[in-house]
């Protein structure tokens, strides 16, 4: 499965409002809310499903990019 890991998971902290949607829907418990913001706590488990990005209302977490 390593070949899939081409896109990096990014967080834009200043956009995060800490709603916890991404944390709930992450199937691999990669994320956590710390001090009111999302934090990546287990990047090795990330399967790049993109659910966090899809459901983040604040554009604070996304895969890939520049």
């Amino acid at each position: 499965m390593k070949a899939l890991k081409s896109e990096k998971l990014n967080v834009e902290e200043e956009l995060c409002k800490g709603c916890g949607i991404c944390v709930t829907f992450c199937p691999k418990n990669v994320l956590k809310i710390e001090d009111g913001k999302v934090a990546i706590v287990d990047i090795d488990s990330c399967i790049q499903c993109g659910l966090c990005e899809l459901r983040c209302p604040d554009y604070a977490i996304y895969l890939g990019g520049k």
């Binding site: 409002k17 916890g20 209302p57």
Partner: peptide
């Protein structure tokens, strides 16, 4: 929009 508001989605 408020934290958790679905509008951004």
């Amino acid at each position: 929009w408020c934290p958790g508001c679905g509008n951004g989605i």
